[in-house]
């Protein structure tokens, strides 16, 4: 199975808005799910900084992402 790509923006705005919590969330994922995901970081995703933290998961952009939202997004897509 090919892994789904999770891209977390770590540009200054996104970082300030809580991107580090998203990385931490990913790091703490149970391996059953983690194994299906490849984490990448980027510096700015499509200049949507005012809506940070911004992530891209499976080629779709999400804005204002919190760890809770990330959890929902990931779980829905890795079922």
């Amino acid at each position: 199975m090919t892994k789904k790509i999770l891209e977390i923006c770590i540009g200054t705005p996104c970082y300030l808005m809580g991107a580090s919590e998203l990385i931490e969330y990913y790091n703490n994922l149970e391996s059953r799910i983690k194994d299906k995901i490849e984490l990448r970081t980027s510096h700015c995703l499509e200049d949507k900084c005012e809506k940070g933290p911004v992530i891209k998961f499976d080629d779709k952009l999400y804005f204002d992402v919190t760890p809770e939202r990330l959890s929902k997004i990931i779980r829905k897509k890795t079922q």
Partner: peptide
């Protein structure tokens, strides 16, 4: 190529590339 890293050592400082 610009390689961003995933490691971050201190939460208050964004990761290096």
């Amino acid at each position: 190529e610009l390689k961003t890293s995933l490691k971050y050592e201190d939460k208050s400082v964004p990761p290096i590339s």
